[in-house]
Simulated assay, not measured.
Amino acid sequence: MNKILSQDQIEAQNGNLIDEIIRMSDFNFERLPMLDIIGERLADSLAVALPDLTGVICEASLSQLDYVPMAQAMDALPAPAMLAVCSSPNLDGEILLAMDSTVLMTAMELMLGGTPKGESPHVPDRFTAIERGFGQRLATLIMHELQSDFSMVGTIELELDRVETDPDAAAVTQPANLCVRLHFAINMAGRTGALEIILPYDALEPVRAKLGKIHFGEPSDEGNPWREQLSDQIGRSTVELEAVLAEVPISIRDIMKWKIGDIVNLWIEEEHDATVVCSDTPMFRAAIGKRNNGNTAIRITETLDPEEEAKNHGRNDH
């Protein structure tokens, strides 16, 4: 149902819109399209990095990117919020990471081995020293991912200066100065929280020229950031390895006759090495033994060439 506005309300809204246009016209700036790309990459990076810290699947998306004065950005922060101030020798000022209580409390519960269910019932008035410690760990991870994603436009070394809970103590520039605000939606364990990154426009001066134009993957003096990004993501991936002790051909007729207590002869010596296989590809030879605690373990004794092993396996089949 449409709401009918009075003449005074219409005039008030028009006045607010005009004030906003006048206020934004006071800023002399150009949009930085590379920040949109960096923001999207950061969302993808967080979706990979956060599960390493929390142990659950996480989803992250860049929901908003806008240019606002610092005062407006600070007024829009969630309350309470964990505020991390970061600095860089490659920038002309500090940047601010802000995460709401949902992101912080859910991540902390997961890092402590809990299993969050439903919406977070606990919204603290202020954060304890323990919660601030977990917030620092989370902010450090986010800062590392942001630093990595900035590599496509230049080397940005970020350092976590301090963690604050008071917005006045976390202001990274003057209230009237223009900032770029990136708002992310973070979903963990069925809960959706907010993460904001506030970049003062003046602080980006050393890399503003590169942020102002779109890079289409051309080579640069800084190396190949896409290759580095891909290598970093591959390095975090997990694979399943199998230690195969022996392979013995047995007819289905014989297998159907097996019963509890039957012994299957593997035709190998006790010191026989196992073959470590990944996705049906032989990778290593390994000796089998036991650790002091009684657990069975393997020791890599030889690195195999998958192509050579495939050729040998083909000859053996014939």
Score class of each variant (00 low, 15 high):
M1I: 10
K3S: 05
I4E: 06
Q7M: 10
D8R: 14
D8W: 05
L17M: 13
L17I: 13
I21H: 03
S25A: 12
D26F: 06
R31Y: 03
R31C: 00
P33Q: 04
L35V: 12
L35K: 09
D36L: 06
L46C: 02
V48S: 08
D52F: 01
L53A: 04
L53G: 00
G55V: 06
V56D: 06
V56Y: 07
I57L: 11
A60Y: 07
Y67M: 04
V68C: 00
P69F: 02
A71R: 08
A73S: 06
L77W: 04
P78F: 07
P78Q: 10
A79P: 03
A79M: 13
A81R: 11
L83P: 01
L83V: 01
V85K: 05
N90S: 12
D92L: 15
G93W: 14
E94W: 00
M99W: 05
M99I: 10
D100P: 08
S101V: 07
V103N: 11
V103F: 14
M108Q: 11
L110E: 05
L110N: 08
L112R: 14
K117Q: 15
E119S: 10
H122P: 00
V123I: 14
V123D: 12
D125E: 15
R126T: 15
I130L: 14
G135V: 01
R137S: 07
A139E: 00
M143P: 02
H144V: 05
S148E: 12
D149A: 13
F150Q: 09
G154S: 14
L158Q: 07
L160R: 02
D161L: 12
R162G: 03
T165V: 11
V172I: 11
V172M: 07
P175N: 01
P175K: 04
P175C: 00
L182D: 00
F184V: 10
M188D: 04
T192D: 04
T192R: 10
G193S: 08
G193N: 07
L195Q: 06
L195I: 05
E196H: 09
I197D: 02
I198R: 00
L199K: 03
R208M: 10
A209D: 15
F216M: 13
E218R: 08
E218H: 13
S220F: 11
D221I: 09
E222G: 14
R227N: 09
Q229K: 15
D232Y: 09
Q233K: 13
I234R: 12
G235Q: 06
T238V: 12
V239R: 12
L241P: 03
A243G: 03
A243N: 01
A246Q: 13
P249K: 05
I250W: 06
S251W: 02
I252V: 15
D254F: 02
D262E: 09
W267S: 15
E271H: 13
H272E: 11
A274T: 05
T275H: 02
V276T: 03
S279V: 03
S279M: 07
S279G: 03
T281Y: 00
M283Y: 01
F284C: 00
R285Y: 01
A286T: 01
A286W: 01
G289R: 07
N292M: 07
N292C: 02
N293C: 04
N295E: 02
N295D: 03
N295K: 12
I300Q: 06
T303I: 11
P306Y: 02
E307A: 09
E308G: 00
K311F: 12
N312F: 04
G314F: 06
